[in-house]
């Protein structure tokens, strides 16, 4: 049986497989940048270390420069004074990039409904996954990570 390569290219078969392959590669090689400001950092460390072992999901390498990272983990309360720093960090990251709001303070501000706190980081940067909890259990974090992987796999890939 002969395969009609020309025909397949014209129907767009090749590009859709490319998207899937890139998504598969990206979701299992997450280089994260942990932007840790508060108590959620403890749960983040617990998730990252051997008991829960975030490396099983291909996200084991935190980069401490935003220029080398693809996922920004915002872990902990963001104050108004810190907001410009977070925006600058986000702008330094190379595309494709994703943002995870870790803990209820980053999702909505939590109980910090006052003059000093940003009520949800989605006021200043676009957020892909919200992980609620004060702080979230490591299982919740891993579920959030898997949801992010699903999103990475299924989205349109920028090349």
């Amino acid at each position: 049986m002969e395969i009609d390569f020309q025909g397949s290219l014209q129907t767009g078969f090749f590009t859709s497989r490319m998207d899937k392959m890139l998504g598969w590669a990206r979701k299992y090689s997450i280089f994260q940048y942990p932007f840790v400001t508060a108590c959620c950092g403890m749960e983040y460390m617990s998730t990252a270390c051997s008991h829960y072992d975030i490396d099983r999901f291909g996200a084991g390498l935190p980069r401490f420069s935003p220029r080398q990272a693809d996922v920004l983990f915002v872990v902990g309360t963001i104050s108004q004074k810190l907001a410009p720093v977070l925006v600058q960090i986000y702008e330094q990251m190379c595309a494709p990039k994703w943002v995870v709001a870790f803990g209820v303070c980053t999702c909505t501000g939590g109980f910090y409904d006052n003059y000093a706190t940003v009520t949800g980081i989605d006021h200043i940067v676009p957020v892909d996954i919200y992980i609620p909890g004060c702080p979230p259990r490591p299982e919740t974090v891993l579920e959030g990570l898997m949801l992010l992987q699903k999103k990475m796999q299924n989205q349109k890939q920028e090349i």
């Binding site: 410009p84 600058q88 409904d113």
Partner: peptide, 11 residues
Amino acid sequence: IKRRQPLIGPK
């Protein structure tokens, strides 16, 4: 109590 401050951007 509900007052929101203007957001400040990066310099």
